[in-house]
């Protein structure tokens, strides 16, 4: 079933706090083969003016996967078929880099839903803020739920 476009504008409750750890940043950097010292050495990050190690630009996908995707998949009224879901695009705007020690929340909103030829194009905004309300990253994503085979 295509998604119901009237879900556009729906905002899910803000997530719990995710605390960004040095070890997780390092693990993520290693998984993408990036040995940049600012991802693993607090002194190198501090020399560049950061309070602690910073995370690679795509690190916030962890928060998107863990919270925004979960909001969408676990919403029975929206009714996304996970097996037909494809990641169409992803974008990040950074107010500053994510860094170790950040205590972040994610607030996910359905921006638009377009249905074309039975495929549903679900455009999401995920606002990644500190628990004190400082905007750190705005993530946008398009998820495509492919039409069922004729």
């Amino acid at each position: 079933m295509p998604l119901d476009p009237s879900f556009a504008g729906h905002t899910y409750p803000t997530s719990e706090v995710y605390e960004v750890g040095r070890a997780k940043i390092r693990e993520f950097a290693e998984s993408i083969g990036d040995d940049h010292p600012m991802y693993r050495d607090p002194a190198a990050a501090q020399a560049a003016g950061h309070p602690d190690v910073i995370a690679p630009p795509t690190f916030p996908i962890i928060l998107f996967s863990h919270y925004s995707m979960a909001d969408i998949i676990n919403d029975p009224e929206l009714g996304v078929d996970y097996g037909r879901l494809v990641h169409g695009d992803m974008g990040f705007q950074y107010a500053r880099p994510v860094r170790a020690g950040d205590r972040l929340t994610v607030t996910t909103r359905i921006a638009t839903i377009d249905v074309r030829m039975g495929n549903s194009f679900l455009n999401l905004d995920a606002l990644i803020d500190t628990e004190d309300g400082e905007r750190v990253v705005t993530a946008t994503a398009q998820l495509v739920i492919r039409a069922e085979d004729a």
Binding site: D34, H36, M38, Y39, A48, H50, I54, P56, P57, T58, V86, H87, G88, D89, M90, G91, F92, Q93, Y94, R96, P97, T140, Q142
Partner: peptide, 18 residues
Amino acid sequence: VTNWTGDPSAVLEYSARF
């Protein structure tokens, strides 16, 4: 991109389609 900028925090926006 970050190899080129040297400083990863120089990246202000980043997006792609799959």
